[in-house]
Amino acid sequence: MANDPERFDSMLLAMAQQHEGGVKDLLATIVGFLSRKTDFFTGGKQGEWEKVVKDVFYEQAKKAQDEADKAKKEREDAEKRLKDIQQKKEQERLARDFEPATVTEITDQEAEQMQEDIEKDKKSKTDSGDGEGSSNEAQADNASEEEDDPKEKGKLKPNAGNGCDLENYRWTQTLEEVELRVPLRQVLRPRDLNVTISKRHLTVAVKGQPPIIDGDLDSDVKVEESTWVLQDGRNLLVNLEKVNKMNWWGRLVTTDPEISTRKINPEPSKLSDLDGETRGLVEKMMYDQRQKEMGLPTSDEQKKQDVLKKFMEQHPEMDFSKCKFN
C-alpha cells in the first residue's frame, strides 16, 4: 500500500477540481503548504530544494513519456493486427473470386432434353397461375404471417448493418464477422480499458467503472482472429470473427434485445462480390433459415418431399398410409 502511486489520487483530484486556474494554481497551493508548514526551503543546504524539485519533476516526466510511448506502441500494434486480418480476408476473397471456372460439355441430346424440361416448367407455372401476380400475393402473405407470428413480436428491426443500435454501443454483422463500436465519454488510453474476448463471452469496461458490456455472446467466436483497437482515444472498435459463418446473430449478447433475423437484407453489392458458387450457397442458406423460422421445409427437405410425391404418383398401387417419413 505504501508504494501505491495512486493512493492519494482521489484526494488530489478533489483538490484540483477546486482550482479554477488549473495546474499552476494547484502547484502554488502545494508549494505554499511546504513554505508555511515545513522547512523545505530553509532546512537544508543552499539550493538543495531546487535539486529535489528538479529530480522529482524529471523522474515523473520520464514516467509520463514512457507511458505515452507504451500506449502509442500498443495502439499501433493493435491497428497493425487489425490491418493484417483485414488484408488476409481480402486475399482470401480475391482467391475465391479468381478461382478458374469449370466448364462441362453436354451432348446435343442432353441439351434438347434440358430445353424441353425448361419449357415444361414454364408451362406448368403459367397453368397454375404462378406468375408475377401470385409472387406479389405470396410476398404480401408472408408479410402478414410475420406480423401474426408470435415469435416475431417484440423483436427489433435490424439497422442498416444488419445489427442493432443500442444506448451505449452499436453492432453490425456480416456472415463472417461482427463489428462493435463503443463511443467513450472521455479520452482514454488502451491501458484504461478492460476488453476480454473469449469463445462465448465478451467484457468491455473502463477500469474503475461498471462494465459497458459483460455477457454471453449470441454464438461462438474465434478468439485468435478477434481484435480490438482504440481509435482517437474516444471510440472502441471490436471485431469478432464468427465460428459459424452460415448463421445471422439475433443479438450481440444474451442480455440485449433481439432483432428479427427474417428482416436481415445483405447489401446486393456484398452478394455480388461473391463468386457464383459461393453466392448460390449463401442465398440457399438465407432461404433455408427463413423457412426454418417459419416452420416450413428447407430447400433440401422440399426436394425430398417432391421426389417422394412423384414416386407415390407413379406407384398408386402401393399403400403409403402407414409409412412415416422424416
Results as ranks from 00 to 15, higher is better:
residue 306 D to A: 00
residue 239 N to L: 11
residue 203 T to V: 15
residue 111 A to V: 07
residue 39 D to E: 15
residue 151 K to I: 06
residue 299 S to Q: 04
residue 107 T to A: 08
residue 200 R to P: 00
residue 178 V to N: 04
residue 232 D to T: 08
residue 88 K to C: 03
residue 32 G to C: 12
residue 141 D to K: 08
residue 110 E to F: 02
residue 81 R to M: 04
residue 181 R to T: 15
residue 108 D to R: 11
residue 229 V to R: 07
residue 275 D to H: 08
residue 232 D to E: 10
residue 81 R to I: 06
residue 62 K to D: 15
residue 101 A to T: 00
residue 157 K to V: 15
residue 81 R to E: 04
residue 135 S to C: 05
residue 269 S to Q: 14
residue 27 L to Q: 06
residue 74 E to V: 11
residue 275 D to A: 07
residue 318 M to F: 13
residue 316 P to H: 04
residue 154 G to N: 00
residue 39 D to G: 13
residue 161 G to Y: 09
residue 78 A to K: 01
residue 135 S to E: 05
residue 132 E to H: 03
residue 12 L to W: 14
residue 90 E to K: 02
residue 142 N to C: 11
residue 214 D to E: 08
residue 264 I to E: 00
residue 94 L to E: 12
residue 158 P to H: 00
residue 116 E to K: 03
residue 218 D to A: 04
residue 261 T to A: 03
residue 302 Q to G: 06
residue 13 L to S: 15
residue 222 K to W: 02
residue 145 E to W: 09
residue 170 R to M: 12
residue 154 G to D: 02
residue 104 T to Q: 09
residue 273 D to I: 10
residue 255 T to H: 00
residue 80 K to H: 07
residue 177 E to Y: 04
residue 6 E to C: 06
residue 89 K to Y: 00
residue 225 E to M: 10
residue 48 E to I: 07
residue 235 N to E: 14
residue 230 L to A: 10
residue 153 K to C: 01
residue 70 K to F: 13
